[in-house]
């Protein structure tokens, strides 16, 4: 394993960068981060649409969620890769199309997780806010979402971890991310699939584990602030921002 790492370590880590395109773990991390950053606000939007006071918006969001949940992610990726350029006439890189597919996919699942928390918030919270004269958007921004997003942090992290692992499907449309790199190395070595794929597993595990720990840290910080023992001013600011 050590000699695999010493021979192929850099390619696993960053692909052919800086002499070629970015790849390996670095590309997996970048794809995950971008998809996550886009999927999160999108999912909040989906959740709000699913609980919208306007029936047409609710129905539209439901159709979207049912559709995305009803097809495999791989199909969405193929679709984005082969069909979208055909229809729109604009060719984009495989990486971008995969990110779009991931965002569309996660938007539905993450959106449902957030919707669950939205509907679990006691009705009195919205009533109290609206009774003060605050409108729908102010109420959502300052009263509802800060509570809901914290309460569904565990299920959101769950979805984020799934998203990180789902980037591996990008290897099937030729994106040179972690799984693709591992496949290439395996093809060169031919005799050591167990070791190569153990390395691949370890790499995904580390990424996902780090995400879990980060969320645990955030949860305990927020809990500490809201139970009142004082944290640092910066953390208070973060907690109030979310």
């Amino acid at each position: 394993m050590i000699d695999i790492l010493s021979r192929f370590g850099t390619s696993l880590l960053i692909g052919q960068f800086p002499h070629g395109p970015l790849g390996g773990i670095a590309l997996t991390v970048v794809m995950s981060a971008v998809a996550l950053l886009c999927a999160f606000p999108f999912a909040v939007g989906v959740a709000m649409a699913r609980t919208s006071p306007i029936a047409a918006v609710r129905r539209l969001a439901a159709v979207y969620v049912y559709f995305v949940r009803g097809v495999p992610l791989l199909l969405l990726i193929f679709w984005a890769y082969f069909v979208v350029p055909l229809v729109t006439g604009v060719g984009t890189s495989a990486t971008v199309t995969v990110i779009c597919a991931l965002v569309a996919y996660e938007g539905a699942y993450l959106g449902e997780a957030i919707r669950g928390a939205l509907e679990a918030l006691p009705r009195g919270q919205v009533e109290a806010s609206r009774s003060l004269g605050l409108g729908y958007w102010s109420t959502s921004t300052y009263v509802v979402l800060p509570q809901v997003l914290v309460s569904c942090l565990p299920s959101m992290v769950n979805q984020f971890i799934i998203l990180v692992k789902d980037t591996s499907l990008a290897s099937l449309v030729g994106v040179h991310e972690l799984t693709f790199s591992a496949n290439q190395i395996n093809a060169q070595l031919l005799t050591q699939p167990l070791e190569v794929y153990a390395l691949l597993a370890a790499a995904y595990f580390v990424l996902c584990f780090a995400l879990s720990r980060l969320s645990q840290f955030l949860e305990s910080k927020i809990a500490r602030i809201r139970s009142g023992s004082t944290g640092s001013a910066a953390v208070v600011a973060i907690a109030e921002a979310i």
């Binding site: 009195g124 009533e127 109290a128 806010s129 009774s131 004269g133 009263v143 509570q147 109030e240």
Partner: peptide, 26 residues
């Protein structure tokens, strides 16, 4: 609603912000 104060049986304070911010929010 801004010109009608309403007090609920269950208080319905916003639990994620301080008492002071509950008052200043609106």
């Amino acid at each position: 609603r801004a010109r009608i104060g309403f007090v609920f049986q269950q208080f319905n304070l916003f639990p994620h912000i301080s008492a002071l911010r509950n008052v200043t929010l609106a």
